[in-house]
């Protein structure tokens, strides 16, 4: 699971086309309300996929299904070839134990709209906590790496600050560093800039652009059309729990085919 390099040059046939994220017919209901009605999605390694859609269309829910924060009711999701949340044995699906689910989540980073930093820990400890606890790294090594990551997101001088002492943009950058500390092969962003004052959006987007440039596979729920156009490799437009339209972001934004996409883009542009 670790150290597997994506896209091996002389791999078995078909290996290079294996997507990092592959979802098929994902259905999810809360009680009697079906929120996801059969989502199909493929995201290649190194690709930045932007997820757009009106409020309540199921974007967050789908993202949370990818790291099994929500259990799906039908369909399947694979990340780097591995089935999420279930194990296939003898042609049957077995639910994973809590420990196994936790192990799968380690390679999937997630960034939340409301940051969800741990308020009782410094920025440095927020980033170093999971590597020491989960990856069993030495405390000193983990802190060193955490400091380097915070440096990378431009917070090298805020290591000892508590989340309450940081601006929203700074908090979100700590949250990104915290996710990166687990060396994920996939990053999920759920409206990472929606809770920020407009003048702070840029600093977070810059960090994300940097990540994209370094080849991180990312799924980004966002209303930042500019970001989608500039950084996105693909754009997926969801509405009412289904994928309405997808394609190259620049083409979809310039020339949406579907009426609902047109209506939505007209509102956010």
């Amino acid at each position: 699971m670790t150290g597997v390099k994506v896209l091996p040059q002389a791999g078995p046939p078909g290996a290079e086309s294996r997507p990092m994220v592959h979802a098929e017919q994902v259905h999810k209901s809360f009680g009697s309300i079906e929120v996801l009605k059969g989502i199909d999605l493929q995201v290649r390694a190194g690709e930045v996929c932007c997820l757009l859609g009106p409020s309540g269309s199921g974007k967050s829910t789908f993202l949370r299904c990818i790291n099994h924060l929500e259990k799906i009711n039908a369909g399947w999701i694979r990340v780097d070839g591995e089935l999420i949340g279930y194990r296939e044995r003898g042609g049957k699906l077995h639910e994973m134990r809590e420990k196994e689910v936790a192990a799968q989540r380690r390679s999937i980073g997630m960034v939340f709209q409301r940051f969800n930093l741990f308020p009782h820990m410094t920025a440095l400890d927020n980033v170093a906590e999971a590597p020491t606890l989960v990856r069993r790294e030495k405390k000193s090594a983990a802190r060193e790496r955490a400091a380097a990551l915070l440096e990378r997101v431009g917070l090298g001088d805020k290591l000892g600050n508590y989340p309450g002492q940081l601006s929203g943009g700074q908090q979100q950058r700590v949250a990104i560093a915290r996710a990166l500390a687990m060396k994920p092969k996939l990053m999920l962003f759920d409206e990472p800039t929606s809770a920020l004052d407009p003048e702070l959006v840029g600093e977070v987007l810059d960090v994300m652009k940097d990540l994209a440039r370094d080849g991180m596979t990312m799924i980004v729920v966002t209303h930042e059309i500019g970001f989608a156009r500039e950084v996105g490799d693909s754009l997926v437009f969801m509405d009412g729990g289904v994928v309405v339209e997808q394609g190259n972001p620049r083409e979809v934004i310039a020339d949406p085919k579907h009426d609902r996409t047109k209506a939505f883009l007209a509102k956010v542009l």
Binding site: L69, Q104, R105, M110, F112, M182
Partner: peptide, 20 residues
């Protein structure tokens, strides 16, 4: 959200309770 963030990092339930 605290629990969710910790879950997303791969912490187990016991670890989340004790540390977060």
């Amino acid at each position: 959200g605290q629990t969710e963030a910790a879950q997303a990092l791969g912490l187990t339930r016991g670890q989340i309770m004790r540390r977060i």
